[in-house]
């Protein structure tokens, strides 16, 4: 909580502070704990319900801890035209999880994403901040095993 208080102190006087503050917290600890709503609300003159409303409106914000890596698979039209549905099914089977879930070893959380802006190189996936294009089953297996081994930065 001390970390969160530091972020609150750094952001509370910024115009339209809530989104930058939520980003700072999530960048730091991986999610926005619900325990923090009260302090955030107090600093920004918002109710807990208003903070909760904003956190849950945006797909990017999470209220639970996640795996060491977040694997996002693009589900949008361009990637569909290049077989992303098969890729999604393959990844789900390979990891034994569905979207918004984390593998038992805590390595990977799987999330859908609607466009990564890499549409000339579909299908695309993103692992944390690293983007990959023209991803097939072999390539995704390699990305997953490297993430599991912690070889990626």
């Amino acid at each position: 909580m001390q970390l969160i208080e530091q972020h609150i102190a750094a952001h509370k006087n910024v115009p339209g502070a809530l989104l930058p503050l939520l980003h700072a917290i999530q960048d730091d600890i991986g999610y926005v704990p619900q325990d923090a709503y009260k302090s955030i609300g107090k600093a920004l003159n918002l109710s807990v319900a208003e903070v909760h409303g904003v956190v849950t409106f945006y797909h990017h914000f999470r209220t639970e801890p996640v795996g060491r890596y977040i694997l996002q698979i693009c589900r949008a039209e361009s990637c569909q035209s290049m077989g992303s549905e098969k890729l999604e099914a393959h990844v789900k089977a390979e990891l034994g999880i569905d979207y918004h879930q984390t593998t038992a070893d805590g390595a990977l959380t799987l999330e859908p994403v609607y466009c990564l802006g890499n549409c000339a190189c579909s299908p695309a996936v993103m692992l944390n901040d690293e983007i990959y294009g023209r991803v097939d089953a072999n390539k995704i297996n390699q990305i997953i095993s490297e993430a599991r081994a912690g070889e990626l930065a």
């Binding site: 949008a76 039209e77 361009s78 990637c79 609607y114 466009c115 802006g117 890499n118 549409c119 000339a120």
Partner: peptide
């Protein structure tokens, strides 16, 4: 907030 699939010119 370039969210349209098939677009990347802003990026």
């Amino acid at each position: 907030d370039e969210g349209d699939s098939g677009t990347f010119s802003d990026r």
